[in-house]
């Protein structure tokens, strides 16, 4: 009887509880954000490239998809602008796109040569020589092109900090303008030869193609999630999660370090653009609607979580339920 009496106020409590929960879900933060998705567009603010693109389409036959991943930024905003280039007075800094919408190569102005040479002489010539001809300590840079220089300097790998097996990515020492000036000077030593600096407009890219060509050409070293991993002899494939689109294309074309070189006969301009778009649009902002991504290292992390948190929590519960003597 006693328990029956208790249940008399059990029902209203349940009702109240459920109403609270219903309210939580109806007026909760997620649904509010979802509602505003349609009204707030990217036009109201300059969308930084760091915001996650929406990797899901609503154009399919399905009506439901994980809403946890919708973000208000359309993905057509990940194009790269290089400050300091477009603001240079005078001529248009880009060469005309060569048949590939979305990937063009930068035409560096002649005004860059002088400051570029000065910067090179002050910072690089000790190792690479006054005419970038190389020395016993450092390779010849002539003929490598402006894109190669831009890759090494803009990723902070040059100037080298120590004599590790492999140069590591770090905050760049030079700003974008200085980098381009040096690149322009090195390019001027061998006009028309080597890797040029690309300008990638990823809004024209096909992510699906990018996925396929990334998997075919890049995943074997950089892993399918772009996390990177150790290679033979102490080298490693670096993570791609920090790469800018133009750096991706520069790396593809110039083959820095142990990375193979892919010319335009191997990976076409369109494919390079798609790969760059996939790297920055998907790998750097992966769709993780299933929750925390556990570092993206696959079953190793999942196994640890499954065993330590899953089985571990349940063992703790056992420990509470059972006797401990």
């Amino acid at each position: 009887m006693r328990s029956l009496k208790k249940s008399a106020f059990l029902a209203p409590l349940a009702l109240v509880g459920s109403v609270v929960v219903v309210g939580l879900f109806v007026f909760g933060p997620t649904s509010a954000q979802a509602a505003s998705n349609t009204s707030v567009t990217a036009s109201t603010r300059p969308a930084p490239t760091t915001t996650s693109p929406n990797l899901f389409t609503s154009g399919s036959t399905s009506t439901t998809r994980p809403s946890g991943y919708t973000v208000p930024t359309p993905r057509s905003t990940t194009s790269t602008t290089i400050p300091g280039v477009t603001t240079l007075g005078g001529s248009q800094p880009y060469v005309a796109p060569t048949g590939t919408p979305g990937l063009a190569y930068l035409n560096l102005p002649a005004a860059f040569l002088k400051p570029g040479q000065a910067l090179f002489a002050a910072n690089c010539a000790t190792c690479h020589g006054n005419q970038a001809e190389g020395s016993s300590r450092a390779p010849n840079l002539q003929g490598l092109g402006s894109g190669t220089v831009d890759f090494w300097v803009s990723t902070g790998r040059m100037p080298l900090e120590n004599d590790a097996v492999q140069a590591t990515r770090k905050p760049p020492k030079f700003n974008q303008l200085q980098t381009l000036q040096m690149a322009a000077w090195v390019q001027s030593l061998t006009p028309g030869v080597g890797t040029q600096i690309p300008v990638v407009n990823t809004s024209k890219a096909n992510l699906s193609n990018g996925q396929q060509y990334f998997t075919l050409n890049c995943a074997a070293c950089h892993t399918i999630t772009g996390a990177g991993d150790a290679l033979a002899n102490g080298a490693y494939a670096p993570t791609l999660h920090l790469a800018k689109p133009y750096q991706v294309v520069e790396a593809i074309r110039s083959g820095p370090g142990n990375m193979p070189r892919f010319g335009s006969g191997n990976i076409t301009n369109a494919q390079a653009r798609d790969i760059a778009a996939y790297v920055v649009g998907v790998l750097q902002h992966p769709a993780n609607p299933g929750g925390y991504a556990l570092g993206g290292v696959g079953p190793v992390g999942e196994g640890f979580v499954g065993l330590l948190i899953g089985v571990g929590t349940l063992m703790l519960i056992c420990f509470w339920i059972g006797d401990r003597t």
Partner: peptide
Amino acid sequence: LLGIAGFIGFMVAYWVGNQSQ
């Protein structure tokens, strides 16, 4: 009661959206 509220909450969560979390 919290448990029962959670069960009802699941129905609501299912009804209003499709978010795993």
